[in-house]
Simulated assay, not measured.
Amino acid sequence: MDKVIIANNLSLAYSNDDTIINKVNFSVDTGSFIFITGASGSGKSTLLKSLYGALKPIEGSLVVGGVELKSVSKKKLNFLRKHLGIVFQDYKLVKEWTIEKNIMLPLIINGYEKSVTQNQVDSLLKHVRLQHQAGKYPQELSGGEQQRVAMARALAHNPTVILADEPTGNLDDYSSQLIWNLLEGANEQLETTVIVVTHHIPETMKVEYKHYHIESGDIREVI
C-alpha cells in the first residue's frame, strides 16, 4: 500500500533547546484512519502542525503527499495544502463571512466553477444539518455548530488527507457523533486518509483504525 506520510528520524521543536518530538519514525498508509493520543503537552498538536507545514522539522525527514516538508518552497507547500482538509480546535472560521461562504473557501482557492461550488456547499450543509443556518455568521452559532461548519469546510474540496485537532473536544453528543460520522464516511466512501489528534477514542467507531501514542517525545503504535 502507498504511504501518504513518511517520517524518518523526525524531530520537532519551537526552539532548539526544547525538543518536543525526538527522532521518531513512522508512516501512514494512504486511505487509513489514524488516532494520535497523548497527555496534554506531549506534542500531539505539534506533530499535526508539522504535517501541514506550519512547523518545519529541526532534524530528519517528513514527507507528506510526496512533498518533503523540511525544506519546502512556498509554492510546493501551497500545492500540498490544496490536498489537505484541516479541522482546528478553535474552528478558525472567517467571522465576516456567512456560514455558506466559509464552507466555500477551499473551493474558491482550488478554482472550482461557481455551479459546482454551490452544489457542493448545499450538499455539505445538509450533511452537517445546518442548511437553515447558511446565511448566518459564525458568532451567531453555538460551538458545536461552528465545528460542524469547520468540518464541512475541511471536506468541501474532497481532500486527500484530513487532519483534525481534537475535533470533538468541547462538543455536545449530537455534534460529536455528526463529526465522527462525517470522518468515517470520508474514510470509507472517498478513501480519504484521516488523522485525528484526540484525548479519547470513541467506542462507537465503525471503521478500522490505527492508534499511535506520544509519550516523552516518542511515538509508538498501540496494538
Score class of each variant (00 low, 15 high):
146 Q>R: 15
170 N>D: 12
129 R>G: 02
178 L>P: 00
184 E>G: 06
137 Y>I: 14
171 L>C: 04
119 N>Y: 01
166 E>H: 09
187 N>R: 10
119 N>V: 08
158 N>R: 12
142 S>R: 03
144 G>T: 11
170 N>C: 05
135 G>M: 11
177 Q>L: 03
144 G>F: 09
161 V>I: 15
184 E>T: 09
178 L>T: 14
140 E>G: 02
133 Q>K: 15
179 I>D: 06
163 L>H: 05
186 A>I: 08
181 N>Q: 13
176 S>R: 07
116 V>G: 02
120 Q>R: 15
154 A>Y: 05
160 T>N: 04
177 Q>D: 11
161 V>W: 01
178 L>V: 12
175 S>N: 14
133 Q>F: 07
172 D>A: 06
173 D>I: 09
137 Y>M: 14
187 N>D: 04
121 V>M: 13
145 E>P: 00
152 A>I: 01
151 M>L: 15
166 E>Q: 10
174 Y>P: 00
143 G>T: 12
147 Q>Y: 04
119 N>L: 07
186 A>E: 13
170 N>S: 13
125 L>K: 03
135 G>Y: 03
171 L>V: 04
115 S>G: 07
125 L>D: 06
153 R>M: 07
118 Q>V: 14
171 L>K: 03
179 I>L: 12
128 V>A: 06
118 Q>G: 01
175 S>P: 00
131 Q>A: 06
170 N>A: 12
179 I>H: 10
183 L>T: 08
117 T>Y: 00
140 E>V: 14
182 L>R: 07
180 W>H: 06
164 A>S: 05
170 N>M: 09
133 Q>T: 13
161 V>F: 00
144 G>P: 02
136 K>G: 05
153 R>W: 09
174 Y>K: 01
117 T>C: 13
149 V>S: 11
118 Q>K: 14
117 T>Q: 14
155 L>S: 04
162 I>C: 06
124 L>G: 05
151 M>I: 15
152 A>M: 11
143 G>M: 06
123 S>P: 01
163 L>Q: 07
